[in-house]
Design a protein around this nucleic acid. Structure first.
Length: 534
DNA sequence: ATAGGGTTAG
């Protein structure tokens, strides 16, 4: 039986249309192992390539297939590098590349092309911790690869050249990128597109436009670059106009336009365009769905989000990577935490963003204990993932929600000491809220004193409010003074302090403050009802 | 077997 299935698989493997599901990959794998064919590298590479497809594959499986080989075949290594380059873990592509180099596995132009692209993507991707943990720095790795490219003579390969331009520009070395670009003797449309996009990304529109005029041919990517520029600059009307007038539209054009609507928070516009896209010739991609799920998350459009999730399940589409995260986030933001958790648990590879979407989702919906439990689970996997600023925002929100003052303070210090994460605006906000609601006004006061002044204004106001609740006139005066030193006071600030005085029956101070307001010209804005005068 | 443009947590 197995043999029959296997030979069918093998013939399918070698056919042009290839395999159609992970199940078939597994069957083919089993057959090959049993029949002793596993040494056929071309076949294994095909399995790995299929397993790394983002729509239906399984990257973990691809990696295990890879490890079953002797890991010294250039073709297979290249396939694995490419798989990771296009994944949410481009850094792992560099690890494979390093492995090739260390073991003297032969490399070719494909290797360098993929590895350079991985460098570029590793920097662009928001897995900042993964990049940091890499140590020497991706940009240096890219330069190192360039040296090898040069030594081996691949610097005349157009694909490698284009990847070099891309990698240098993403690493912030636009001058080097331009140098490589200028050296290319026969530029392709892609060469021009990469260089123009590089200038666009650093807002050097003049240089971008100059090249745009010079380029001999343009394609849909060239137009998409312009569309992306308008979207990035929030010029939604210009984007709409260009979108309408473009000579050709592909999925990226639609995705950019949808992302543009989402960016300016026109979620209805995004959903309408999504419907229009579904009626067009261009098929929605994962990126389309990710944008739309984001719109659902922001508007609480649970039904649309669920519909997308359902249709993906029907199509047996893989729920991993960005898409898996977008679904988790959509459910979490829509308050359907059980569904969020279900999808989250199924994610085979969880980036820090996945953990954060879940932890923050639990925290803001009031499931403090679950959020903190999940954080504890995350800390047990430090070899895979490291908490970052956002994680601790979620943790502190969880504490704040339930008034867990001691725990919150502990996590706050833990964040700084164990993870060397410097607290930001959100962390300070949570902590001041937590401390002051718990009545630890002086602790809150001391904390605010450590905060940069431009971030502390809102914190002083929070504490001033807490001083009223806890009837602490002395501290209220201090907060008021700090506020006064930082920016022109608002009438609400005077009202608050005045009420605090009034509640302490310090009528002289109420009067003094009132006079001060008249002098400052604030009082005329106030209705007399604002101040509770006796 | 190659590229380039579009995507997730706060």
């Amino acid at each position: 039986m197995l043999r029959g299935t296997g030979s069918f698989m093998l013939s399918k493997l070698l056919q042009a249309q290839g395999l159609s599901s992970m199940k078939e990959v597994e069957q083919a794998h089993a057959f090959l192992t049993k029949a002793g064919f596993f040494a056929h590298n071309q076949v294994i590479a095909k399995l790995i390539a299929f397993a790394s497809l983002s729509s239906s594959g399984c990257l973990v499986y691809a990696q295990s297939l890879f490890e079953e080989t002797t890991m010294d075949d250039p073709f297979i290594c290249n396939t694995m590098i490419r798989a990771y380059t296009n994944s949410i873990f481009p850094i792992k592509a560099i690890h494979i590349y390093n492995h090739m180099h260390n073991l003297n596995v032969g490399t070719d132009n494909y290797t360098y092309n993929f590895a350079l692209k991985a460098c570029a993507r590793a920097l662009k991707c928001k897995e900042e911790d993964a990049v940091k943990s890499y140590g020497v720095g991706i940009a240096r790795k890219g330069a190192e690869i360039h040296c090898r490219v040069f030594k081996l003579g691949y610097d005349s390969d157009l694909y490698v050249q284009n990847s070099l331009v891309f990698a240098y520009s993403q690493c912030g070395y636009i001058g080097f990128a331009r140098h490589v670009f200028d050296e290319i003797t026969e530029r392709s449309v892609s060469s021009w597109n990469i260089m123009i996009s590089a200038y666009d990304q650093i807002n050097d529109f003049e240089s971008a436009d100059k090249l745009f005029v010079l380029m001999p041919q343009k394609n849909v990517v060239s137009w998409n670059t312009f569309l992306a520029r308008h979207v990035r600059l929030n010029k939604i009307e210009a984007a709409k106009k260009l979108f309408k007038e473009m000579p050709e539209k592909d999925a990226v054009s639609w995705n950019s336009m949808i992302a543009g609507y989402v960016e300016v928070k026109d979620y209805d516009g995004a959903l309408n365009l999504f419907r229009e896209m579904q009626n067009s010739k261009v098929k929605a991609t994962e990126v389309t769905l990710i944008s739309i799920l984001g719109a659902c998350a922001e508007t609480g459009a649970l039904e649309i989000g669920m519909k997308i999730h359902e249709s993906l399940k029907v199509k047996k589409h893989k729920m991993e990577g960005y898409l898996g995260n977008a679904i988790v986030d959509m459910y979490a933001k829509c308050g359907k935490l059980s569904s969020a958790r279900e999808v989250f648990n199924e994610l085979k590879m969880k980036t820090v963003s996945c953990w954060n979407a879940m932890i923050v989702g639990l925290a803001v919906n009031g499931y403090s204990e679950e959020a903190l439990d999940l954080f504890a689970a995350m800390e047990k996997k430090l070899n895979e993932v490291r908490p970052n600023r956002v994680t601790f925002t979620g943790v502190l929100i969880a504490c704040s929600h339930k008034g867990l003052v001691e725990e919150g303070s502990w996590y706050f210090n833990h964040m700084i000491q164990k993870y060397s994460i410097m607290p930001d605006k959100k962390h300070h906000g949570c902590m001041v809220d937590l401390l002051s609601r718990g009545g630890l006004l002086y602790e809150a006061y001391q904390l605010i004193e450590t905060v940069p002044s431009d971030e502390s204004i809102i914190l002083w106001r929070t504490l001033l409010g807490a001083c009223r609740v806890h009837r602490n006139v002395e501290l209220a005066e201090k907060c008021f003074q700090h506020l006064a030193n930082l920016e022109p006071l608002k009438d609400a600030d005077y009202v608050l302090l005045s009420n605090i005085y009034a509640e302490a029956e310090r009528w002289d101070d109420v009067e003094r403050l009132r006079n001060g307001m008249i002098n400052m010209g604030v009082l005329k804005i106030l209705g007399s009802s604002h101040i509770e005068m006796k």
